[in-house]
Design a protein around this nucleic acid. Structure first.
Length: 266
DNA sequence: CGTATTTGACCTGCGC
DNA sequence: GCGCAGGTCAAATACG
């Protein structure tokens, strides 16, 4: 995601100065020049022209300065985002209370997010004993997305541009809110699963855990466009990244309609 | 009537 | 081996 390439930082104040002509004060319309037979003193005309040119130059310089500033900001943003991605790769959400009590399937998930392939003896043993399906599961990509919803919204629906079929719901031990289980129903062969549960700390936040990668594009444009948010690009959606005790999370504020959609998170 | 959701039962893995 | 908890299945139900 290179935002410098997405954002046109140029205000284009100087590319076509004639654009300013309609905006100029009409004290001296051209017709007047004609009527007066250009009898006006050339001195006043030159002064006005000079002032305009000076103003244009000033605006141009300001434009250039603003463009540079914006470019720097975008560069810094990209650097920060890259650092965040690196951090999340190295420090997957291990300290989440949901996962702390039972480590069952967390460790494979951690390895996935870290991209760790080191094989300790215990790992080898566990791998030997695991069926092929489980080993495939280990390769599945796991990501977590926190979505802020209206406090009044009691549903567990996270609109991300894909079509999901709910196949189960369970109340877990660590969270009084039920956890909903979804499968991607857009493509029959798509292996992606999603778990959605309200945050213990903030009931207005939905925590969606995605397992696997979609082997198909997002839903039709018409579908995506009608939704306040499908999957959104981190940079175009009001969002915040936190690296708190509960692990790195991305929070998308879906209550604010974004300008565009399509976020792929890791 | 077809599809999506709900929900209780069942399966599986882990800790004791 | 047993119990617990998370995850999945599938019949029942709701809905358009």
């Amino acid at each position: 995601m290179e935002y410098t390439s997405l954002v046109d930082t140029s205000l284009d104040l100087n590319s076509n100065p004639t654009h300013f002509l309609p905006l100029l004060p009409k004290q001296e319309p051209r017709s007047n020049f004609i009527e007066l037979g250009l009898k006006m003193s050339s001195c006043n005309d030159e002064q006005a022209t000079g002032a305009l040119v000076e103003e244009l130059n000033r605006l141009s310089a300001e434009n250039k300065k603003l463009s540079e500033t914006l470019t720097i900001i975008c560069d810094n943003y990209n650097v920060l985002q890259k650092q965040l991605a690196d951090y999340m790769n190295k420090n997957p959400a291990p300290s989440d209370t949901t996962y702390n009590s039972k480590k069952r399937k967390l460790e494979p998930a951690n390895q996935i997010e870290r991209g760790v392939s080191e094989s300790s003896s215990s790992d080898e043993d566990s791998c030997k004993n695991k069926p092929i399906q489980d080993q495939q599961h280990i390769k599945a990509k796991i990501s977590r997305v926190c979505v802020r919803t209206e406090a009044s919204d009691t549903g567990l629906l996270v609109k991300d541009g894909y079509q999901w079929r709910k196949y189960g719901q369970k109340v877990t031990r660590d969270n009084p809110s039920p956890r909903a289980y979804f499968k991607c129903s857009h493509a029959p062969t798509c292996p992606v699963k999603k778990k959605v549960q309200r945050s213990v700390e903030d009931q207005s936040i939905l925590v969606a855990t995605y397992e696997g990668e979609h082997n198909h594009p997002t839903q039709s444009k018409h579908e995506s466009l009608n939704r306040p948010v499908a999957t959104a690009t981190l940079g175009s959606v009001p969002c915040s990244a936190s690296l708190g005790s509960s692990g790195p999370t991305i929070t998308l504020d879906l209550t604010t309609p974004p300008k565009s959609a399509d976020v792929q998170l890791f």
